[in-house]
């Protein structure tokens, strides 16, 4: 039971690496994700289509580190094409980390690139996180995706994706995760299971 409660808490503590970190002007977004022992939540507001500001909570169950941060995301460049769109973002945050009751500064920054049309998707992102005296970590990930059918606006969109994640300091530095993305209306859900045995859950709610 304790594991289930921790799992649910971890999911809603989750950190997203899933979709556009900036919304439309005046839009709010809740992003939650979990991969293995790491999870996070990011709740942000976009004053313009190029910026979003918000709260980020992280929880690393393995290292027993929790963090709370203010996060700023910037859309550096968007390429709008007739049939596709590409984006380049920088995401940074600062706050406090808590490890077994001890506190330290928390800082993270990274870049994200994506390209998609209505059938194919590809992305790359990296992130350097410093937990101050608790250490630091670097991770990067890349994705490819394909939609088996092109759904109309408002219908259920389905994507099959493959994510490769690299965490050089981890016991298993490379994780390969097949994912299913289901996207309908304002809800986007991703479920995956890596070949290394970790479950991935991502959820986005935009309003």
């Amino acid at each position: 039971m304790k594991r289930i409660i921790l799992g649910v808490l971890a999911f809603f503590w989750a950190v997203p690496a899933v979709a556009r970190p900036v919304s439309y002007p005046g839009g709010w977004t809740l992003m939650a994700s979990k991969h293995g022992e790491k999870s996070s939540v990011h709740y942000h507001y976009s004053p313009t289509f190029k910026d979003s500001i918000g709260y980020k909570g992280i929880y690393d169950e393995g290292a027993d580190i929790k963090g709370h941060a203010f996060q700023y995301n910037r859309l550096v460049k968007r390429w709008n094409n007739p049939m596709s769109q590409a984006n380049f973002y920088i995401k940074s945050g600062a706050g406090m980390a808590d490890k077994e009751g001890a506190l330290s500064g928390l800082f993270f920054t990274g870049l994200a690139l994506d390209w998609e049309d209505r059938r194919y998707f590809t992305s790359y992102e990296n992130k350097l996180t410093s937990y101050g005296r608790f250490g630091q970590e670097y991770e990067q990930s890349a994705r490819v995706g394909i939609a088996p059918y092109v759904a109309e606006y408002g219908a259920l969109h389905t994507w099959f994706m493959l994510e490769v994640k690299n965490d050089p300091k981890a016991d298993e530095p490379v994780h390969i995760t097949p994912l299913v993305r289901l996207f309908k209306g304002v809800h986007l859900l991703e479920v995956g299971h890596s070949f290394q045995g970790d479950v991935t859950l991502n959820y986005i709610y935009r309003f």
């Binding site: 769109q85 998609e116 408002g154 209306g185 935009r206």
Partner: peptide, 9 residues
């Protein structure tokens, strides 16, 4: 140009 998903719409 750039309309690729429901979030855009």
């Amino acid at each position: 140009n750039g309309l690729v998903c429901d979030f855009c719409a």
